[in-house]
Amino acid sequence: MSISPKQRLLDTLAKKRVDRPPVICTGGMMNAAIVEVMTTTGHTLPEAHFQADRMATLAGDIHDGTGFENLGIPFCMTVEAEVLGSEIDFGSLACEPKIGRELFGSVKEVRFRDVNTMLDSGRIREVAGAAGLLARTHPDQPVIGSLTGPVSTAASLVSPMQFLKELRKEREAAHRVMDYVSTFLVAFARALVDSGATAICIGDPTATGEILGPRMFDEYAVTYLNKIIDGIHSAGVPVLVHICGEMKAVKPSLPLLHSDAISTDAFVNLKLLKEEYPQITTMGNLSTILLESGDPEKVARRTETLVREGIDIISPACGLSTSTSLEAIRAMTGVVKER
């Protein structure tokens, strides 16, 4: 008898032998709330960003429609920035929420608030509530709670151009902000875990090698990702980390991350990465451009290659376009499950 998708993912993350790789889509930055799912079911965004039951229903619809072997919430990267006080534009059915305006102009201006009281503001309790509902309705499926990573969250709180300069110019204040944001992110993750999340995925699109360079990637991204990962590990669940970009400049830093799996963009050759660092559990990295182009045969072929190359967890390589078709996604999930 085959094991449940939840156990398969947990076993994979624990580096145990499994029958085949899980095929998942984590939510958050990499969510699959595509237009076709919503127009079919009538359970739509932006409404599902705000209420636990609607968020859980849409996550369930996505799971049913796409064949991804998990439930992934939330469907945006703005839950954290909203709570921290930045202005959010909640978008529409086809357009995801984004930061309207960052609250602060400099890391030196950031006012620090009590992290625990912040957990009762914004949409934190709704996302946690959705995790709870999903864990009850889908006991065999992993419920993945997605976080916006520390560098991206800090760059959503402080104007990003200024923030990036201040990583060099105002190191002490920058570290204080990163530490504050990371403490908050651990608390948010723990709220999700307490409600029943099986695993946490962190996506940090501002923390790329291309943007930060290797030195600052280590000083800020690795340090604070690890702080968050350690905090989540002590709550007893595994952590997946997605790193955007080509990663040439920061590849040697990857083994330093404490995460249980590393997901990458489509440019990265995961097979070679695995050969170089056999200790890394790899996740990815089907091109979302290929997925959006919609040719199911090409999608299936490329997915099959990833499976054959021994990629541990099959997943899209980046955020999905909301105009991606269900047919293309099913071609991806179907070919993994056939094996």
């Binding site: 300069k165 060099r168 110019k169 943007i211 400049a249």
Partner: peptide, 14 residues
């Protein structure tokens, strides 16, 4: 040449 990255380039431009 990947010796400078975005923060460095921003500071040069300042």
């Amino acid at each position: 040449d990947e010796e400078y990255f975005i923060p460095e380039l921003l500071m040069c431009s300042d």
